[in-house]
């Protein structure tokens, strides 16, 4: 049988996906146990027990200085920034992308500017953002927006631009105005693509968030990771990293689920 024709079933696919993850975890556990056998005070590869101890202090016990449960306060702060950044980016990108994709005049006038913004490394703009917006929340949210909104905008614009001319002509022969075309032809067909683009943007959005928090912040997941780095606290860094990964996966799956439920017509056949 040809390799391209070998397809795993549902259960074996899940099993096959779990094996590499299990190997990575197992390798870590063995390496950690080995290091602790040689040096019980090792900080580089903390044991699971050490991680639980360190984390429970942050999760369950209020910080004596601020009186907050730091882990939850960090999570809430980061998610708020991320949510604001993603939400505002999505709204801008949908609006601008839709109009650009549909109206050749707008595309001609906006495409170069958006391309220029998209190719600037957003982190390089961070100092400017801090200078302009101060060290507060605005600069961090703005970094996420500048980082991902141009990408989503271009994606939506090119997707709408790729709607067959036949459809646009057909809608006009059915009496649609430009406004109605945007509302009933372009917008619904942009939505599944939008969800897809936002899913792809979650990764970069986290990068910009952690960067901004690392440089100037007093709370947040990225802030905490960079703070405890000074004490070589791998027992906090590793669980925090795992937690960000978990949050990202949860967002991704939620968007995937929404896309499937809301736009059944867009679920093409997969090989």
């Amino acid at each position: 049988m040809q390799w391209v024709n070998v397809k795993p079933g549902r259960r074996s696919a899940a099993l096959m996906g779990a094996i590499p993850v299990a190997i990575v975890i197992l390798t870590y556990l063995i390496a950690s146990a080995n290091r602790h056998a040689a040096n019980p005070a090792d900080k580089l590869l903390p044991t699971p027990g050490a991680m639980v101890d360190a984390m429970s202090a942050l999760i369950l016990h209020a910080d004596p200085l601020s009186g907050r449960l730091l882990f939850w306060a960090d999570t809430a702060a980061s998610l708020q920034r991320l949510g604001l950044g993603l939400g505002i980016s999505t709204a801008i990108a949908l609006l601008v992308g839709l109009v650009m994709g549909l109206l050749p005049v707008v595309r001609a006038s906006l495409a170069p500017l958006i391309t220029i913004i998209a190719v600037i490394p957003p982190i390089a703009l961070l100092p400017i953002l801090f200078i302009v917006f101060g060290l507060g929340e605005t600069a961090k949210v703005m970094l996420i927006i500048i980082g991902i909104a141009p990408f989503i905008t271009r994606d939506i614009a090119s997707h709408i631009g790729a709607i067959p001319a036949e459809q646009i002509v057909k809608a006009q022969t059915l009496g649609a105005s430009s406004w109605q075309l945007a509302l009933r032809v372009a917008l619904p067909q942009a939505m599944p693509r939008l969800i897809h683009a936002v899913r792809l943007s979650i990764g970069p959005a986290w990068v910009f968030l952690i960067s901004a928090e690392a440089i100037a912040s007093d709370i947040g997941l990225g802030y905490r990771i960079f703070l405890v780095r000074r004490y070589l606290s791998m027992d906090i860094i590793l669980p925090y990293v795992a937690w960000t990964a978990l949050l990202a996966i949860a967002m991704d799956l939620a968007l995937l689920w929404i896309g499937r439920k809301a736009f059944p017509w867009a679920q093409g056949e997969r090989r």
């Binding site: 057909k170 006009q172 619904p188 736009f263 017509w265």
Partner: peptide
């Protein structure tokens, strides 16, 4: 430009993929 006085059917892409059959007829 195109208008509702002239109807058209192309070889392909004449219907809207995001609308059901009934909605496709209703939309006009």
């Amino acid at each position: 430009e195109c208008g509702p006085d002239r109807g058209v059917v192309f070889q392909r892409y004449s219907v809207f993929p995001h609308l059901t059959v009934l909605q496709n007829v209703l939309v006009g």
